[in-house]
Design a protein around this nucleic acid. Structure first.
Lengths: 205, 205, 205, 205
DNA sequence: TATGAATGAGAGTTCATTCAT
DNA sequence: TATGAATGAACTCTCATTCAT
């Protein structure tokens, strides 16, 4: 193992830890697993992280940052395009879908590993979940105000349905590897949008 | 703590364990927690269960049985009523919804605790998930054959969307306690069905 | 399980315990094993014995009594026959040999199970061993006085050699079942005696 | 307790464990006893051994290696000296005797502790026992072929008698500390050989 | 007297973390 | 900074014994 600068080493440890947490879960991943996978000594881990929690938290934080960027990004010429609410919806679904399919480890951690860890982590994990649902809700409400989305829908329920359906799709196609090939993600996105379109949008599909 | 009928004692321990697993997760629930909650001595646990895994497995098994009963149950006058595919759909959603809202602990275990436990449990947990999705898929396919459901839908994707949306709804309203009151479950069910109706059914909603 | 008088029940428990101790050793034999083998309830054991040690001690005691009887028994017309020292020697070897081959469980307990149990039992087991060796020694000394046995032998060493050789023979042919058939015990006894005869006796063999 | 070379530490733990097993037996020796005797923390034991069995097995293995070396070693000028069968016999008895008297712990473990532990260990312990008896038997048979040993002896019985007598002598003088002083081992060896000489050898003693 | 559910001290083992080198 | 031997709190599980019925 050659010399490495500190940041590089830290990233390397995180990468290995992420893979292991995603595969085996938090409690079944031992420090010794991470250490071996990263090819460093036991003690070295503690030069870069306070403890096991810190490693996991850092992974979660990174995921959070990535998600925020992607989820809150806007399509080119956003202003004009918002005239077509469905297009914006599709843009975001596609973006988020890409996030999960490009990094199945993150997806696994978010959807599986992070859950059931007790209060320590759970509240952090909830942030993602709620953030996603809240974002969808905000989108729905603003759409209603703009007269693009049906005003009588239950935004709370609908944002949960969309969020739940999306996560499941992301998990099924992005993580389990079952089902489709990568090239077909565009088509899946399309069908996802169409499924909810009639219930949401005022304009004709 | 006095003597007790064996079945009663076993059920009592399971009940306490279920609550704890739902609250704290599998690994953070110690045998001593269960023992204290059940008000029995440490060793008593091991008179009724081989080990910690056995307790958890038994809980999962019970959940499995309950789910199977509910999911495979049919509405009264099923034969005639199948003429209306949407009615069957709604019947099942309502039933399954009730299961989770009536027993939030089970719901929590199924949706959160069971995940990220590594291969031991995960494959068992997957059974529930897959069972649900498979059931929905079977429903969709038979609906297509009978000319009640759009023949061009992607049944795999659609069953994942419906399953994901449903689980999320069940969790949100059944477990977190946020949102609605119990009386409104009927309305939630209705809206759930309507959201997917257009994308699924041929008959006019 | 029919009614039984107390002594009968006690003997039955002892019999089962003896078999199990002989087979599996002291620590690997659980009270529950004994209880099941004897076909009685857990608590019943404690009606007849103070504790696990008490059961084992009783078995040892019984063995002790049996051994004492056999070892100290004398051949018919003992007085006259002592003129032939070798005959007495053979008589005793045959008797003791019979004890072990007739009850392999006792033999096993004496030769294997009882050893390595720590101070509690060990000192009791030693009694048998020492008793045997002491008896042989006493025999040798009295033989020397009577002018039948070589006066220059080291009685301590010789009694250990004879004792060790005998125990090994008893174990090999009586317990492991290897080697000879039962009918040949007489011949084994004969050969045993002859092996040591030259080193011990004054008279010509 | 400071840092230490790994092999040194392992040997140190084994040494303490050997003493304790020899004194108290397998089941009555706790990990905490070994840990305290070795002056290390509980967990340190598990850095060097998989579990308690592993410690005991390693001790047995070491004993096995030592025994094999000693038992199969040959006297100087072996070839020529075999002309005198009794000399070879004596050589080996002396060597094996020395092994046990020099390391009474091993002797104790082999003769007492290892027995009655149930199938796990017993079969391993038997190896030693059988090995010894088989070696003696092989010696007797080759002696018969060479015309040095009486052709009509029962080699199976005789090897058991010699083995049993030897083990008892080794235990009595080597472990219990009773009887002789160390200087007299040569004389004991001599007397041992003479005791069996008449029954075994053809040449005049 | 017979039962067997209940007990709890105590055993072996794990593993995140520390710290002398 | 990097190491990995050492640590020990905390965990799961066992099993002889008790005692209400």
């Amino acid at each position: 193992m050659g010399r490495m600068d500190a940041d590089q080493r830290k990233r390397q440890i995180l990468e290995c830890a992420k893979k292991l947490f995603a595969q085996k879960g938090y409690y079944q991943t031992q420090i010794s697993d991470i250490q071996q996978a990263a090819g460093v000594a036991r003690g070295t881990i503690y030069q870069y992280f306070k403890n096991k929690d810190d490693i996991f938290m850092t992974i979660l934080e990174n995921l959070h940052l990535e998600m925020r960027d992607i989820i809150s990004s806007k399509p080119e010429n956003y202003e004009e395009d918002f005239s077509n609410a469905k297009k914006v919806f599709k843009y975001r679904i596609r973006k988020a879908f890409a996030l999960f399919t490009n990094d199945p480890d993150y997806c696994n951690i978010l959807l599986r590993v992070g859950l059931g860890l007790g209060d320590n982590f759970e509240c952090i994990l909830r942030r993602f979940d709620n953030q996603m649902v809240e974002l969808i809700k905000a989108y729905l409400i603003s759409g209603i105000k703009l007269g693009r989305i049906k005003p009588d829908i239950d935004t709370e329920l609908m944002s949960n349905l969309i969020g739940g359906a999306f996560m499941r799709m992301a998990y099924y196609y992005g993580v389990t590897g079952k089902g489709r090939k990568k090239e077909e993600f565009e088509k899946l996105t399309e069908e996802f949008v169409e499924t909810f379109a009639y219930g949401i949008f005022l304009e004709k599909p």
